[in-house]
Design a protein around this nucleic acid. Structure first.
Length: 436
RNA sequence: GGGCUCGUAGUGAAGUGGUCUAUCACGCCUCCCUGUCACGGAGGAGAUCGCCGGUUCAAAUCCGGUCGGGCCCGCCA
């Protein structure tokens, strides 16, 4: 019966059987320490028998083995207990030397990221690396927790589509049994359709962007949290929901994973329950004044503004997450709702965290006639199979609704304080990486 | 797509015309070591300095090209 690393300390005095990977050898002459890694962590094993030590000669980190030994309470051991009188069984001998460090922190300097990803398969066994993805897993877990608590239904929508979805982002074309299809750049249309079924839906899944972007914040395959909620009274309902969700997951991860975040040098969390909200025009003006430039003609925020406003809000308001609202109509997509009180702006807010756009949270135009009108104005064909079925949902009644596209990779990146979104992705895909 | 920038053992770095027959650390191999936990000590192997061409008496170092990265901008989330 296998005992896991975290259970060893509960078995003092007993002989236990552990299984895992050889993670570290320290030979001190008559005494050898080895660390065995399993899914919970590490166990220290003390070996004095020369024949047992000899079993590991020539075997590298990564060797799969089992150890039978007696658990001794030992204050000098990590975790307070360790295995003695160990009998080793090598299950999978590994003679190949790992091409990258497994037991010491890996370089995340920009120039070394290529090596980091090239040796990703083994580098992920590094405990510092795997910590990133454990935190990622838990963040997603807390997101689901929040969404279910608020009666959202998790959905899964197709990623192979008949035609262009939203416009804007470039799409990947694929051959679909002889006809041309595209990879979904977002579940936009399907999640809106699904508000007609469940009112509140969310999806966590991949989205594909074919942009030729080479920056620290872009990849070709992203993991998005898409939320859509119906029967909203105002756009603020959407902003509040996404804000509360973000507050919930961030405060919870900082509480539950404090030690891990600290060991990854994550910055301290500076967050308030109510995120400061600024309009695009306000940010342009504030940033312009502070930096002596005129950005009033810009339709979107420039990256430097995103960094600046988060920094500003952190210092002035004690919150490093902010909303930027009232985007100009020039930037709108056909399915956005124009602000009824000011037709020059759109009911659209972006969530920024630690200097980066994390989510975009607009209200949708839910009136069929108005939507078709906006489509035509944008030069789109309502009869195209990419739009026809989408419009059907509106024709048969969708309530006022809105939602967000929320970048999970960027959330993980910024939560941990990584410098490049790719570091938060197991096997990142970018303009020049398709493997591993 | 535009601009800038980088490329030296498996990994991370130093070296910016000669003293480089290329240095250091980690990892690897051999040996010593009974409380290590980034163990310590002695020794060893491992690099045609991304590639091609040029300048020069002399190139890891300067120049041009090329290939491969990175960062910023644009686009976008």
């Amino acid at each position: 019966m296998r005992v896991l690393s975290s259970e060893v300390k509960d078995n003092v005095g007993k002989t236990v059987h552990i299984e895992g990977w050889l993670h570290k050898k320290r030979l001190l002459g008559g005494l050898t320490f080895i660390n065995v890694r399993d899914r919970r962590g590490l166990v220290q094993v003390v070996i004095q028998d020369k024949d047992e030590v000899e079993k590991l000669r020539g075997l590298q980190i990564g060797t799969v083995l089992s150890v039978d030994g007696q658990v001794k309470e030992e204050p000098r051991a990590p975790g307070g207990a360790e295995l003695h009188d160990a009998k080793l069984t090598v299950l999978v001998p590994v003679e190949a030397e790992p091409p990258i460090e497994i037991d010491k922190p890996l370089s995340h300097k920009p120039d070394n990221l290529d090596t980091l990803f090239e040796h990703r398969v083994l580098g992920l066994r590094n405990l510092q690396e795997s910590k990133i993805f454990k935190i990622r897993s838990e963040l997603v877990h807390y997101i689901r927790e929040f969404m279910f608590k608020h009666e959202f239904v998790e959905i899964h929508t197709p990623k192979i589509l008949a035609g262009a979805t939203e416009g804007g982002a470039e799409v990947f074309k694929v051959d679909y049994f002889g006809t041309e299809a595209v990879l979904a750049q977002s579940p936009q249309f399907y999640k809106q359709i699904m508000t007609g079924v469940f009112e509140r839906v969310f999806e966590i899944g991949p989205a594909y962007r074919a942009e030729l972007s080479a920056t620290t914040r872009h990849v070709s395959e992203v993991t998005m949290l898409d939320i859509e909620m119906g029967f909203i009274d105002a756009h603020e309902d959407v902003l509040d929901m996404v804000q509360d969700m973000t507050y919930y997951v961030l405060t919870k991860i900082y509480d539950q994973y404090a030690a891990e975040l600290k060991s990854l040098n994550a910055p301290d969390l500076v967050l308030k329950e109510e995120f400061p909200r600024y309009t695009v025009a306000e940010v342009h003006e504030m940033y312009g004044k502070a930096n002596n430039v005129d950005l009033s003609k810009e339709k979107d925020l420039i990256p430097a503004e995103e960094r600046w406003i988060c920094d500003y809000a952190k210092k002035q308001e004690g919150c490093e997450a902010v909303y930027v609202t009232h985007f100009p109509v020039e930037a709108m997509k056909f399915y956005h709702m124009v602000n009824p009180d000011d037709p020059t702006t759109v009911m659209w807010g972006d969530l920024l965290f630690r200097g980066l756009e994390i989510a975009t949270c607009p209200q949708r135009e839910h009136h069929y006639d108005k939507l078709v009108e906006q489509m035509k104005k944008a030069g789109l064909d309502p009869e195209h199979p990419g739009y026809k079925y989408y419009l059907q949902a509106f024709k048969h009644g969708l309530p006022a609704h809105g939602g967000c596209g929320f970048g999970i990779d960027r959330l993980v990146e910024k939560t941990i304080g990584l410098a490049n979104v790719k570091e938060a992705i197991l096997f990142p895909r970018d303009i020049n990486r398709l493997t591993p």
